[in-house]
Simulated scan of single mutants.
Amino acid sequence: MQFLTHNASARLPTQYGDFDLHVFHDNRTNVEHIALTCGDIMRSPQPLVRVHSECLTGDVFASTRCDCGEQLHHAQQLIQEHGHGLVLYLKNHEGRGIGLSNKMRAYALQDQGLDTVEANEALGLPVDGRSYEAAAEMLAFFEINTVRLLTNNSAKRSALETLGITVHQQVPLLTQPTAENLKYLQTKSAKLGHIIPDLMG
Rank of each mutant, 00 (worst) to 15 (best):
S131K: 01
T162P: 02
L160C: 12
G164H: 14
N181Q: 02
A190C: 10
V127L: 11
Q186A: 10
N153F: 05
I196P: 00
T187Q: 07
F141K: 05
R130Y: 00
L150I: 13
I196A: 09
M138V: 11
A135F: 04
K156R: 09
A155C: 07
T175Q: 10
K191V: 04
D128W: 06
Q170W: 05
H168M: 14
E121N: 06
L192W: 04
K188V: 05
L182Y: 04
S131F: 00
Q176Y: 05
A122G: 07
A135Y: 05
T166L: 10
L125N: 09
E133S: 11
V147L: 15
A122D: 06
Y132M: 13
L185Y: 00
L150P: 13
L182M: 11
L125M: 09
M138C: 02
G129N: 04
I195N: 06
T162R: 14
L182V: 03
P172R: 01
E133V: 00
K156H: 07
P177E: 08
E180D: 13
G193F: 02
S131D: 09
N152G: 08
A136V: 01
I196M: 03
T151I: 01
M138W: 08
N145L: 00
L173N: 01
A134R: 03
L174D: 12
S189W: 02
I165H: 11
S131V: 05
N152E: 01
T187H: 06
L192E: 06
Q169E: 15
A159S: 10
Q176V: 08
L149Y: 14
L123R: 13
T151W: 06
L173S: 06
A155Q: 14
L139N: 07
Q169L: 09
S158I: 07
L139I: 06
N145Q: 14
L123A: 09
P197H: 11
E161P: 12
A155Y: 12
K183Q: 10
Y132E: 11
F141G: 00
L123H: 11
T146R: 15
L173D: 00
Y184C: 09
N152V: 01
T178W: 11
L139S: 09
L139K: 07
